[in-house]
Design a protein around this nucleic acid. Structure first.
Lengths: 224, 224
DNA sequence: GGCAAGCAATGACTTTTATCATATCTTTGA
DNA sequence: TCAAAGATATGATAAAAGTCATTGCTTGCC
């Protein structure tokens, strides 16, 4: 159950509050490809991911997905629209079989009201996300496709890590990568071939491994 | 003073809380072009704009500004990094002479802790901003320059309104518009000429007037 | 009022990226 | 296990956008 996660959004709550939450929540699961929340809908609660990987995306013109970010263990889905009292602005779909807790709107607000520290934590979280969104805006506006692709590969590595064989521990199609980078699928494929030829990454089927992190950082213009 | 604004971030506070804030705050003013907060710095407080217009932007590679959004009467500057406890992620510069209240970090947090409703309002605000940022990401990633320019012109109109002559009540150079749209200055100039020729906007010097809102919405692919 | 600095405008040209077409490789499920 | 569907790969070409160069217009300041 997601409350027990070390890094769960709810991890800092008192035991009492956690106990109450665990009474109010229900457990749900989603199969790979299943839509969890849908853009435009009015949310009735939030999901806290226990185990799994989820993409958050908006539909652009021509029905093309734009992936905004990923959500994984311990993180929330749907809190943004619940708190801003707006329609859901981004759909969420499971990228692999996913298990989550569902917390109804009223219970969620109850926890917020009774736990000022939790409310502050949410505030901190959303402000952090805002900073990340700003970075993404600047990259999309100013970097070229190759720079953006290198940046996204590094983000994927930092977010999901690597499996035993060194491949990124996340399975995305080239099209999904293109939908993050903001480009055509063919361009991603071409550039992945190029990065592979230059020895900065390797790939087998859809799986990708970062082999030269420094080189990617240089390509992406990241100095940290 | 900014606390008295109808639409100020602080408008819902109790009179007591407002009184206390007004003791803790100081008044500051910025001349056109003056930097208010600087990317990378650690903020020591927040600014609440009383009167004026401010651009919020990050520096991309090659030192090119990327304007994330504008801030005007009643809105806060610097709260994001204060709340997420990070370095300032976006600089703010006055676009015209601007008057603001400065509220030191400790006072700001005091108000948050003592007024749960205010804390919730900030949460709502930042969640709303997150939604807007998501929209901007999708536009930048999927729309072409002309569509984005039309969208930005509509946003400027909605944010700043028009003066007596019907011109947008905000003075931006073509370069600044390009820094919002995420394109080259020349491209913005060319497209403004084109929109003007087609009769959708008019312009005189740097001033721009939207004459056919519907047409711009159609160009921008906005259906609302 | 005139002059300089900064901005806007436009043309010519290059580079980047998208699109379309087609071939080949991988998965997946009957 | 084998066929079909779905993904990846690559080439040719077109379209979009950026860059560089130059001219002309505004504006603000002495």
């Amino acid at each position: 159950m997601c409350l027990s996660h070390q890094k769960s959004t709810f991890s800092d709550l008192s035991n009492d509050a956690k106990d109450e939450l665990s009474r109010l929540k229900t457990c749900v699961s989603f199969r790979k490809g299943q839509v969890i929340i849908h853009e435009g809908a009015r949310p009735q609660g939030v999901y806290c991911i226990h185990r799994g990987k989820v993409k958050l995306y908006t539909m652009g013109t021509e029905g093309k997905e734009q992936i905004i970010r990923f959500i994984t263990n311990g993180e929330l889905i749907g809190y943004r629209s619940l708190l801003s009292d707006e329609a859901i602005s981004a759909s969420a779909t499971a990228l692999e079989d996913t298990f989550a807790c569902y917390i109804p709107k009223s219970s969620f607000f109850k926890v917020i009201e009774e736990n000022p520290k939790f409310s502050l934590k949410l505030l901190k979280m959303s402000c952090h996300e805002l900073g990340e969104a700003g970075k993404m805006i600047t990259s999309l506006a100013q970097k070229n496709v190759k720079e953006r692709l290198a940046e996204i590969l590094l983000i994927l590595r930092a977010t999901f890590g690597e499996d035993e064989e060194g491949y990124l521990d996340i399975s995305l199609t080239r099209e999904e990568i293109a939908n993050m980078v903001g480009t055509a699928t063919e361009s991603v494929i071409r550039l992945i071939s190029e990065l592979k030829k230059d020895g900065y990454i390797s790939s087998k089927g859809k799986r990708i491994a970062v082999s030269d992190r420094g080189a990617l950082q240089q390509i992406a213009n990241i100095f940290e």
